[in-house]
């Protein structure tokens, strides 16, 4: 339950702060959430990773849907040499997830036992 609340908190705070702050703000967000929620190290990584994966992949999925894949078709050709919009969405989620995951992991090591 704690993990789910942590994930939701990561998503909400990141979504708000991303509007004003640079993209890597997602790392300190996951860091602080994992510290405040006193998460175990694997929970902390998951909270950051899943939170940002859901946020970034979800956000890009909705944008892509309303764009009817016009841009994702082209950008996926640029990165993968073939039309793969879904791969682009997953890559978006993984990039955000990894950064926030490690951010969260670092935060968990500050929790006093």
């Amino acid at each position: 339950m704690k993990l789910v609340s942590a994930i939701i908190t990561v998503i909400i705070i990141s979504a708000i702060l991303e509007n004003f702050l640079p993209w890597w703000t997602i790392a300190p967000v996951a860091f602080i959430v994992s510290y405040l929620f006193k998460l175990k190290w694997y929970q902390a990584f998951l909270a950051g990773f899943l939170g940002l994966f859901i946020l970034w992949a979800g956000m890009s999925f909705f944008i892509d849907h309303s764009n009817e894949h016009i841009l994702s078709d082209k950008v996926s050709v640029l990165f993968f040499k073939s039309v793969k919009p879904m791969a682009l969405i997953i890559m978006t989620g993984v990039i955000g997830g990894l950064v926030a995951g490690f951010g969260g992991l670092a935060g968990s090591f500050l929790v006093k036992k």
């Binding site: 991303e18 509007n19 640079p22 993209w23 970034w56 956000m59 890009s60 944008i63 892509d64 309303s66 764009n67 016009i70 841009l71 994702s72 950008v75 890559m91 978006t92 990039i95 955000g96």
Partner: peptide, 13 residues
């Protein structure tokens, strides 16, 4: 790739 600031923002409805 940041969907808030990166290329996804150029995908117009």
């Amino acid at each position: 790739f940041d969907p808030y600031n990166g290329f996804w923002q150029n995908a117009e409805s």
